[in-house]
Simulated assay, not measured.
Amino acid sequence: MATPLAFTGRSAHSAAAVRAAFADEQYWKDRIDQVGGVNARIESLAIAGDQVRVELVQTIPATDLPKQVTAIKPDGLVIPRTEIWTGDAGTFTARVDGAPAEVRGTLTLTEDGTGSRYVVDGSIEVNIPLFGKKIEAAIQENLSDLLVREAEFTDNWLSSH
């Protein structure tokens, strides 16, 4: 059974402002530089009208993983990730290179009083006997932390642009 991934972030900025950031190439460059982690990079970015597709590669260093995980992946985890936005809704997928692990779900951006709300609803599935749940828990913890940092980054980036 998959491990759920749920996150809700709030911004002082409107959903329209957040959407505008998502449609700005500099936003993605700044975000990956500031919160992407070691060796993080943008693989591709396509912006057409209200649709944005970004492919990123992020890592979880071995020092941030439990020993059961580093026994299998001693160099840490490399995670290719794709977000596709159309207007206020999107999808995301991520996988772990060299491991039967997948993260997927939906993204929603809505107005919330004087600001906006960003909701991630997904699941993490690692098909490795005995260690799958430990790896799922490590991915969930790291992704949850990353989502918090990304939401804070977006709010700060919008305040300064």
Rank of each mutant, 00 (worst) to 15 (best):
R53Q: 14
R10Y: 15
F22E: 03
L45Y: 05
A94H: 11
E141C: 12
V103N: 02
D33M: 07
L107G: 05
K134G: 02
T154Y: 02
T108H: 10
D50R: 05
D145R: 15
G122Y: 01
I139M: 15
R117F: 02
H161E: 15
A137W: 00
Q68L: 09
R117M: 04
L146K: 15
I124F: 01
R53A: 13
Q68E: 08
G37F: 01
A62E: 03
E150F: 09
Q68C: 08
I72V: 13
I135L: 10
A15V: 13
M1R: 02
E136W: 06
A2Q: 02
G49R: 09
Q26N: 11
R81Y: 13
P100K: 06
A40M: 04
P4V: 00
G105S: 00
V18E: 03
D64V: 03
E152D: 12
V148R: 14
A71I: 14
D30P: 06
D50Q: 12
S11G: 15
E150K: 14
P74I: 13
S116D: 08
D112C: 11
G37E: 08
T106Y: 04
N127H: 04
A23D: 07
H13I: 10
T3E: 03
G132E: 02
T86N: 11
N142S: 10
R149S: 05
G113A: 14
P74C: 11
M1F: 00
S159E: 11
R19W: 06
T3C: 05
A46F: 08
P80E: 08
A151S: 13
T86L: 14
L77G: 03
D50A: 09
V69S: 06
G105T: 01
D112P: 01
E136V: 09
E125G: 05
I47R: 06
D145M: 14
I84T: 12
A23P: 03
A138C: 01
G122D: 01
T154K: 07
T59G: 04
L65R: 07
K133A: 10
S144N: 15
T63L: 10
S11F: 13
F92P: 05
I79F: 06
A62W: 07
D33Y: 09
